[in-house]
Design a protein around this nucleic acid. Structure first.
Lengths: 216, 216
DNA sequence: TATCTTTGTGTAATATAAACACAAAGAAGT
DNA sequence: ACTTCTTTGTGTTTATATTACACAAAGATA
């Protein structure tokens, strides 16, 4: 079980990596992961690992795919189920390192050489995120509960690797009626403060049942 | 490893099932599947199973997801990687049964009670097919090499579970420039014979690289 | 020759997406 | 107090894509 943990911080999409302390690829950076216990489902295992390695609870988690190439682990044949997670870095004050393991966040576009086939898994996870962020409102999982529209737009630009038009973006996202103005505004910014919104997940789930589809 | 094998025949989307000869769920219908050997990748295992159980070679095959619920097999904890396959039933004259196993094709909308959690897997596979058929040209994997536009449209209607407008469908699919008229027409039909087309996979792969995206 | 089913074709109306610029808020510096 | 700077917030026009819709002719059958 391996997990690609994405976070968004400082206007940049990050991924959490840990430095291996054990033999194959010792010292290399790798995706956090572990073994699935006999008394837990795959999803439970992924969630447990996430708590153990990052202290993060209650995050968006989704199965990615399963890799079973014969030589992916030099020692023996290892099949791994890969997951990816989206976590709210800002404000959550994540301790990236637990267990005395060396863990850190890297920009997805500037990742060191990874152990095993973890780069391939990371690529696949990013691709999935890129595809899914358009038709499911998962981008919000990476932002704090309250955010400015410009932050949301920038997140989308990073995930999609493409520039978006400000007015069209706002028209579309506000037109869906899923953002609620909190009445609050940004603080401690060196320019005009933007209004803060939150995503109305409850409403989304309701209208989704009635055939609404998110699209950006 | 389990595999959801879809076929399209008689204007209907079918799925291949085998009747279990062994203990848990003996006599019940189930998805074809088997164990992954130590010297083969997951994809190879799926392909091998497919040949063994249906004689089918060279089919579209894709990993679906991995299920690891604790009690899905009453005997012990079994994790299975589910695949789905799209096969050209018409003309290929598939022997659905090999191995003295009892195998048969069922309409996806009229499936008997399945062993294990196979109904869930089937549902998930159908959902994936439904989603993917719109943005990847995988529908053609279910049709014979040469087909009439009305057949293609009907296949899409079955996969998407929605009626399509004939003129708009033809406009769009022909407009992509990926169908080649073979010059041939239908034979042995009790009405005006339709022109036959084939899908230009080579061209698709080329223009896909240049950013073209299939959409229906 | 009449009947039946299915093919093959175009246009107008509507909806969606894309392109585009500027005034005002508010913090920082002078 | 004033100027400068960065960022917010807002509509309209144009182009493109999607939807809705009907009928003549092909060819098999009786």
């Amino acid at each position: 079980m391996d997990c690609v943990v994405f976070g968004y911080d400082d206007g940049d999409l990050k991924v959490m990596l840990i430095q291996r302390k054990l033999k194959p690829f010792k010292g290399n950076w790798a995706l956090p992961g572990g073994s699935v216990r006999l008394d837990e489902t795959l999803d439970e295992a992924a969630r447990r690992e996430l708590v153990e390695e990052s202290g993060l609870n209650n995050v968006y988690l989704e199965q990615l795919y399963t890799v079973g190439d014969i030589k992916r682990d030099p020692r023996e044949r290892v099949v791994t189920v890969a997951y990816y997670a989206l976590v709210k870095l800002v404000g959550h004050n994540v301790q990236a390192s637990t267990d005395a393991e060396n863990a850190a966040w890297f920009s997805v576009n500037d990742v060191p050489k990874l152990a095993f086939d973890h780069q391939r898994i990371l690529d696949k996870a990013f691709e999935r995120l890129k595809g899914k962020v358009r038709y499911e409102p998962i981008g919000f999982e990476l932002l704090p509960g309250k955010f400015a529209l410009s932050e949301l737009q920038h997140l989308y630009e990073v995930c999609l690797e493409e520039k978006l038009d400000k007015r069209n973006f706002r028209k579309k996202i506000l037109g869906m009626g899923l953002l609620i103005g909190t009445g609050e505004i940004q603080k401690d910014v060196a320019h005009r403060a933007a209004r803060l919104y939150r995503f109305d997940m409850k409403k989304y789930r309701q209208i989704k049942k009635r055939g609404f589809s998110f699209w950006l």
